[in-house]
Computed example of a mutant assay.
Amino acid sequence: MISVKNVLVVLAIAFTAYLAARGLWWTTAPVPQPLVVVATLGLYLATTWFCIFWEPASAAADEQPDAGGIRGPRRLPALAQFLALACAAIVPSAIAFAVGPDSRTASFATWYLGGIGALMTIVMVRRRPWTAWTGIVMLAIASMVWMGPLEALALGLVGSVVWVTCAQLLVRSMDRAARDTARLTRLQRAASAWQASQVVRQRERRVQVQKALVVAGPVLTRTVANLGELDDKDRLEARIAEGRLRDEMRGPRLLDDDVRAELERARRRGANVTVLDEGGLDGLDEDALSIIRGQLAETLRSASSDRIYIRTSPDARIAVTVVGRSPSTGGSSDEDAVDLWREIPHPGVG
């Protein structure tokens, strides 16, 4: 499969091979040490391609963070760094020695200026900037010693410095783009989550409105038809409808058909019932909720209190607490006695 990475790898191989091939183009005179030249070229190519291709599995732990799905080049392993620095130290001096003093500025003898620069560019792209700049300094020192400062600068040293500099700027720009992409991805996910939550809330509001219309619609219709003049029966139905709406809004997870029927029965006999879901039922599946609702309906079926308070409990053992209060024998509402106390445990809790 053709990808940007594969294209860059092919270009790096072709370019370094071309630079190394220049070292074999002896057009002026035979070199004094041809075997040294060939061995040096082999060392250069092996090291360069080693730095291009070597990505051991252990390098994954040393890899740059994957930001927003954009993965940059992996860090060059320590052994490859050592080989790259050794190549930067050996190749210039070996070539200068092998070609002799009369050919040190010939084109086939100055290839290492671009070759080591390309190698250090690869090292820079593999996220080893200190190693890359160390290699450039070693190249600059060796080439200036063997050629002279002006000749080294004129024959390719400046270009190698420019390549490494551009590579470092490119890597930094790529990392910055990856961070920006990751940040935008997080913002997009947050916006999508917020939008989804709004859709869910709108759906819940529509469901609550529909329930309210079902419960309060008949009462409102009769109220409008009678111009607000309600008899005792209609007032009772209005109070029951209001209580059912409060139950649906404040404690929907506590309700099923049996619980709703018992709540309505308690209100019809004149009890004041309050249902509050204050947490504690989160994470329970439908089977567990069914068990809790069954026990709640059973408790309400036998309750005779004038005021009944039903609350969920944050306690790890207790799911729902039911408290009933009725006036004491003295008749004072401020001295209501607790005549019902029931704690419904979480299913499976002894």
Score class of each variant (00 low, 15 high):
63 E>M: 14
11 L>R: 04
253 R>G: 04
182 A>Q: 12
102 D>I: 07
97 F>A: 07
91 V>H: 04
239 R>A: 14
287 D>P: 00
307 R>F: 08
72 G>S: 09
98 A>S: 08
119 L>Q: 03
303 A>G: 07
83 L>F: 15
229 E>H: 14
227 L>A: 13
121 T>H: 09
179 R>Y: 10
28 T>M: 10
45 L>Y: 03
147 M>Q: 15
133 W>N: 01
296 L>Q: 02
10 V>I: 13
136 I>E: 02
197 S>I: 00
152 A>W: 12
162 V>W: 09
254 L>K: 09
182 A>V: 04
273 V>T: 06
30 P>I: 11
55 E>A: 12
232 D>K: 06
181 T>Q: 04
114 G>V: 08
12 A>C: 05
331 G>C: 10
304 S>C: 00
301 R>V: 01
64 Q>Y: 12
187 L>H: 08
160 S>Y: 05
82 F>C: 13
91 V>A: 07
212 A>Y: 00
223 T>R: 14
8 L>M: 11
282 D>C: 02
113 L>V: 10
98 A>F: 01
185 T>Q: 13
317 R>V: 10
22 R>Q: 14
248 E>I: 03
12 A>M: 13
319 A>L: 14
207 V>Q: 07
25 W>P: 00
192 S>F: 04
96 A>L: 05
108 F>S: 14
158 V>Q: 05
214 V>G: 01
107 S>F: 14
172 R>V: 13
89 A>P: 00
298 E>Q: 13
77 P>H: 05
78 A>D: 03
14 A>W: 13
192 S>C: 04
26 W>G: 05
282 D>Y: 06
185 T>K: 03
151 E>V: 02
274 T>C: 05
348 G>N: 11
238 A>M: 13
172 R>L: 12
308 I>E: 10
307 R>A: 11
206 R>W: 07
340 L>Q: 14
77 P>Q: 09
222 R>Y: 08
105 T>G: 10
219 V>W: 06
164 V>P: 09
103 S>R: 06
324 G>M: 04
299 T>A: 15
83 L>C: 13
103 S>C: 07
122 I>L: 15
63 E>T: 11
205 R>F: 12
215 V>L: 14
42 G>H: 04
13 I>D: 00
337 A>I: 15
216 A>M: 15
28 T>Q: 11
68 G>L: 09
115 G>M: 08
34 P>V: 02
43 L>Q: 08
95 I>E: 00
82 F>R: 12
158 V>E: 01
163 W>C: 10
7 V>M: 15
213 L>N: 07
5 K>E: 11
37 V>S: 03
264 E>P: 01
97 F>Y: 05
146 W>V: 05
195 Q>W: 10
321 T>W: 00
101 P>Y: 02
6 N>F: 05
249 M>Y: 06
94 A>E: 05
313 S>I: 02
238 A>D: 02
207 V>P: 00
271 A>W: 00
102 D>V: 12
191 A>E: 09
63 E>N: 03
170 L>A: 15
